[in-house]
Design a protein around this nucleic acid. Structure first.
Length: 566
RNA sequence: GCCCCCGUAGCCCAAUGGAUAGGGCACUAGCCUCCGGAGCUAGUGGUGCAGGUUCAAUUCCUGCCGGGGGCACCA
């Protein structure tokens, strides 16, 4: 709906510009401006529902001042929209400021939108942006060597919300977790558990510093130790068999823990992609062979290198170490080739900030595979710093002590934590105030938004008690400024969703929902929904139920509940 | 040393290159015979520094200053 209105307005504007700017059709710059024509939604409502800065750009080409250019365009635009009659959206257009063209929409546009939402609910809010294109969103992908940290928590919150945003924008999204279930870290995990197991058996062991120190390692060892049948079986294993057993068992058990943590957080995945399986499939070798044939692989200093400098990386990267084992890069290239082979045209990866240096070589790999660098988008999810009463919570990873997703969840709950992790741009640092997140007051944004939803639910419920007539509402009764503000805020939902999908960042929704809630609360304060005037009541209930649909939809996308009562 | 993020009011943050730089907290003064006061209204107060691009810079480019994070034949 929003898109349709915007599109029609743009073509109307183009037509107006073309017929009012004769004399410069030959200039390529003219077409550059015409083709990059955009509408913006002004911050100030006195500047209209949409505004356009074309006159400012065209002025120097025309050698005229921007205001008169804008005036010419506006007069044509008014004439054209008169010809279109009832089909036109434009109520009025005027020139303001340096030469902005401000367009005011007919109320009918808003009424149509209200009808649409009340008829088809969340369906009305979907966009056709993606056209059903298949997108693979890979996120979290933490090694199964311990509980998820706060950093993973933010990645999970962002990834899940982004997947929802893209789905609502019309993409076919697959959520995937890349599981590093073999390699050095897993071996260390296995040895860590084995050593604790030996300790329980009464052996004195030296526990290396680079091994996993957390108490959960001892817990896992104790689980095995306490199972007498299993203990006996383990004790009969050879040394290599023990190593393999403890690694596999540890990774398995910790993956269960991670899955449970994600489930409690409300985040689910469609695919758990195993690195071990990838290794077994022979795809790493075939991918490297493939790149070798293309001339992007060479040997030097006993190692095998990927010529990533060919694609703009700082230096070439090792894919196979001199000891014969692969670096992380080798399976990763194969993994991304596999993603493409599975039919995904667009790959999106959410990585932690420690991986940002890794982007150029991964992009290089994508290009070496014969794809476009744009086919892979990497989003760096910056760290969240937890604060308690204004003091940062220490997040040392030494001795395996770090703040976990589970702890945050236990302290502030799912709704507040999901919302808070999304309140800043994904690639910006985030200060997460635990005390604020726990507060059940208007200071806490998530309560502010949920309260609006609960309040509307309450009004609608008491309206049902009073049995208002259910005739088609007469929306033309909605004439108060607060009502128009609210209709416009409702109208902007799709615009917000569009921007989030385009920027691959769901954080804008947290902003928008606070804005929509604010406009609603102001309307509520000024006007009674349930008035003696039954027709007016009907129209206002219609209005706020549209707000309710959008709040619920927006919160659902963010992974936050929308309670009927609080 | 190199790379990423950030410098906006006492504090936390907004602002697809646009108009008078918005909101929240705190502070001050108001609003409950009334649909949920977990709400609303009003007031005080601001772009780190120096250049550049532009009709227009908080936004883009260069340099500097300050804060946070990261650099591997680890994953």
């Amino acid at each position: 709906m929003f898109q349709r209105v915007e599109k029609q307005l743009l073509s109307l504007l183009k037509e107006s510009i073309e017929s009012s700017c004769c004399g410069i059709f030959q200039q390529p710059a003219f077409y550059d401006i015409l083709n990059s024509l955009t509408l913006e939604v002004p911050k100030e409502k006195e500047f209209g529902d949409f505004s356009c800065n074309a006159a400012l750009q065209l002025a120097s080409l025309l050698h005229k001042n921007p205001k008169s250019v804008a005036q010419d365009i506006v007069s044509v635009l008014k004439k054209l929209s008169l010809q279109h009659g009832g089909d036109a959206f434009v109520k009025d257009a005027e020139v303001k400021g340096a030469g902005f063209i401000n367009i005011f929409l007919k109320e009918k546009v808003f009424f149509d939108y209200l009808n649409l939402i009340n008829d088809s609910r969340e369906q009305a809010l979907k966009l056709g942006l993606g056209g059903g294109a298949r997108v693979l969103l890979e996120f979290v992908s933490a090694n199964p060597t311990g509980s998820l940290s706060v950093a993973h928590a933010r990645q999970a919150a962002v990834g899940d919300a982004l997947a929802n945003v893209l789905a609502a924008a019309g993409y076919d999204v697959t959520r995937e977790y890349y599981l590093n279930d073999e390699g050095n870290q897993i071996n260390i995990l296995g040895r860590s558990i084995l050593l604790r197991f030996k300790e329980l058996s009464g052996e004195t062991v030296e526990f290396p510093e680079d091994h996993y120190q957390g108490a959960y390692i001892t817990d896992l060892a104790r689980e095995l130790f306490d199972d007498k049948v299993l203990r006996l079986k383990i004790e009969n294993f050879s040394a290599p068999e023990k190593e393999i057993f403890f690694s596999e068992h540890g990774a398995h058990r910790i993956l269960d823990i991670i899955k449970k943590e994600l489930d409690d957080f409300g985040v689910s995945f469609d695919v758990w992609f195993s690195q071990k399986e990838l290794g077994k499939s022979g795809k790493i070798e075939s991918t490297l062979d493939n790149l070798k044939k293309k001339g992007f692989i060479y040997e030097a200093d006993g190692a095998v290198w990927f010529k990533s400098t060919e694609f703009g990386d700082d230096k070439d990267r090792v894919v196979r170490k001199s000891d014969g084992s692969y670096t992380y890069l080798a399976p990763d290239i194969a993994y991304h080739e596999d993603k493409f082979r599975r039919g995904f045209k667009r790959l999106i990866n959410l990585w932690g900030p420690d991986h940002h240096g890794y982007i150029p070589r991964m992009k290089a790999a994508v290009r070496a595979l014969g794809r476009d660098a744009q086919d892979l988008s990497v989003i760096i999810v910056q760290l969240a710093t937890l604060f308690r009463k204004g003091v940062p919570v220490p997040m040392s990873t030494r001795k395996g002590q770090y703040v976990t997703l589970r702890e945050v969840l236990a302290e502030v709950g799912r709704d507040a934590s999901r919302f808070f992790f999304l309140m800043r741009k994904t690639d910006s640092h985030l200060d997460f105030d635990l005390e604020l997140a726990k507060k059940q007051t208007s200071e806490n944004p998530v309560y502010y938004v949920q309260y609006a939803h609960a309040r509307i639910s309450s009004i609608l419920a008491s309206a049902q008690d009073k049995k208002f007539d259910s005739k088609e509402p007469d929306l033309s009764l909605l004439k108060e400024p607060e009502e128009r503000d609210l209709m416009k805020a409702i109208f902007e939902f799709s615009y917000c969703l569009f921007v989030c999908a385009k920027q691959l960042d769901p954080y804008g929704l947290t902003m928008y929902l606070q804005y929509l809630s604010g406009v609603f609360h102001r309307f509520y304060d000024k006007h009674k929904c349930l008035s003696p005037d039954g027709r007016l009541t009907q129209a206002r209930l219609y209005l706020i139920s549209a707000v309710k649909v959008e709040l619920a939809c927006g919160l659902r996308i963010l992974g936050v509940s929308s309670p009927e009562r609080m």
